[in-house]
Write a protein that binds this DNA or RNA. Structure first.
Lengths: 344, 344
DNA sequence: ATTGGCACTCCAAATACCAGAGTGCCAGCG
DNA sequence: CGCTGGCACTCTGGTATTTGGAGTGCCAAT
């Protein structure tokens, strides 16, 4: 694309101008308005020729014959990849973010604050994933006897997540046995990554007398199956009201988006793109895997240390969104959250 | 109202018919259509007289001259209080609810399933509150040493909620001390209601040597302040996409609703109306405390045993909603959830 | 390659119009 | 006294119709 001789500098300028104008006005932009607002140094006729070419190449399109041009997904893509620079947040914004996030009490609070903040700053829908269990280390495993034959398994991770599951036994278990298992588990996995648990625990049962094995195995299988193999990834979102700021043909365009946003799975898949805190990933329009989100874009990144990202966060909005601004905000917020959580 | 001689039986019938028709068609309903659809045994002229009277009394209104009538909030109120009977769910629906809820693994799962279910059945926005901490009993208190001077306080309630807070000490604490405090706490509060904790714990510090008091007091104050005095009431919602099914003048009417729904405080206040599982409370339109929800209604009830309700749940929709259906669904779902949680 | 000019297209807003639904009122009737 | 049919009136919502203007593509000239 870069070496496409057809796209000389001016044409790229034109595309950039179209994207910027369209994003800010939400109206198809015509050649005349373009030369007026940007000093391109050529006449509108020239711009028209350029636009015809940009259209031929698929970067822009016109809603109907005699209307201005609108960027296509491909156009936004080029814009994001080559024509824009990230818009850094203002000093005031940075300060606000930092102080706001530092006031958080616990993990839930951090996540809640983050998502609201992100929604507010970008004026889009914000999505924040809880630190992923699979990338977390075990801080402590606790077993609490609820009733003679039931135990609550509580897992605490280094990122502050606390997950619990009920373990049911066929017969009653005594307190001493519970303590033994608790001790054995913690000795093996405390401080280790949750994903390592299966290998670390595969011979833990050997140390127990034969008649106690059912208990040990019940606890182990609950832990491995529901916490390691099918971990409960959580996502929270905020700012759905921002969706109403767009598109005039309302109920129809907003509906599928709201529906999609209710599916945790969908959200996770969207954020799944982002695995490296150093990179802000952008999914534009139809690049988006989910049907109902074909007219939205997702800007996301991972947070946490770059060697060991914890999870992802991002924003979702219409394809005509302020990409430089969103990218800047997402990156900044991700950094602060990473710092906060690293410090805990 | 009941003894208002002006409202004879037929006028009430007319009001009922207007509400029902308007809810199902979303069109102002006129006298002619009314006599056709319901066999009222009188002519449309008579109905017109009745309608003029109902309007005078403020139960219905017309959007403009020469349009049909639309119920007012006052009209809906009368309808709900005196003119409708709760619509029970079909056997199939009941079965579906039961089996769906019984598949839940833990409390989070129960709540998530409930809220989705309620949204689906009523086709409205559903709101479910987690079992309130203040109405729960303590099953177990756990203290986990995170670092030399930090301990994680984990509270497990009889309803399956697990809450945690970090307790910071000015100096390091040893494992034995942690164990002592844990033991002391559990001896006092296990099995007791959380609201009783303050009085049960007021002399717990006496049993400890003077130099250990700072530790004990830190733990106590965290527990009492953040878990008892300012408990973290959680609410989840689902079905926001259902909001798009209404009102044509869209962005403007849906916006404030979405905004209000993002405020936990607002949701809690709405559900706060419902304190008795035997009563389904209905808030109609402007009865609603929150500004942005003036054109919506809330149908809610408490769930749990009636002597000891756990929390509340409900649905929110436009004032022109199917009240009998919503009331039936809310009541049914509340019962099932109460049963499920009681069984755990 | 760029530009001014021009004919052409098409939407969007304004205007006009009409059919229909609905109302209120009244006089007559049981 | 309540009910009814009849009637004149009102208002909206939908359908045409018009029109102004923005925007385009193309072409000949520079």
């Amino acid at each position: 694309m870069l070496d496409d001789a057809v796209l000389d500098d001016r044409k790229l300028d034109v595309l950039r101008a179209i994207v910027e104008d369209y994003v800010s006005t939400n109206e198809p932009v015509g050649s005349k308005a373009l030369v007026e607002r940007h000093n391109l140094g050529v006449s509108s006729a020239t711009i028209r020729n350029d636009m015809a070419l940009l259209e031929e190449e698929g970067y822009i399109a016109q809603p109907h014959t005699s209307a201005g041009r609108v960027p296509t997904d491909k156009g936004y893509r080029l814009f994001v990849d080559r024509l824009s620079s990230i818009k850094p947040l203002s000093a005031a914004e940075r300060r606000a973010i930092q102080t706001f996030l530092e006031g958080a009490l616990d993990l839930d609070d951090v996540v809640r604050r983050t998502v609201r903040l992100l929604a507010q700053v970008t004026r889009q829908v914000a999505v924040v994933q809880y630190p992923s269990l699979s990338r977390s280390a075990v801080r402590h495993v606790e077993l609490v006897r609820l009733s003679p034959a039931r135990v609550l398994l509580v897992l605490i991770t280094d990122t502050g997540r606390v997950e619990q599951r009920v373990v049911e036994f066929g017969q009653s278990i005594d307190e001493a046995m519970v303590a033994d298992i608790r001790m054995a588990l913690n000795n093996r996995v405390a401080g280790k990554l949750l994903v390592e648990a299966p290998s670390l625990l595969d011979d833990v049962a050997d140390a127990f007398p034969r008649d106690r094995l059912p208990f040990v195995n019940s606890v182990l299988s609950t832990m491995l199956e529901t916490l390691v193999e099918h971990p409960d990834e959580r996502v929270v979102l905020a700012g759905t009201a921002n969706l109403t700021r767009f598109s005039v043909d309302f109920p129809y365009s907003i509906r599928p988006v709201l529906e999609a946003l209710e599916e945790q799975v969908v959200l996770l898949r969207l954020l799944g793109e982002a695995t490296d805190p150093a990179i802000v990933s952008v999914l534009i329009g139809a690049e988006n895997p989910h049907e109902g989100l074909r007219s939205t874009s997702v800007v996301s990144t991972a947070y946490g240390r770059s060697e060991a990202p914890l999870a992802a966060l991002g924003v979702l909005g219409p394809t005509r969104m302020d990409y430089p601004g969103a990218i800047g905000a997402v990156r900044a917020v991700a950094r602060y959250v990473g710092q906060i959580l690293a410090g805990q």
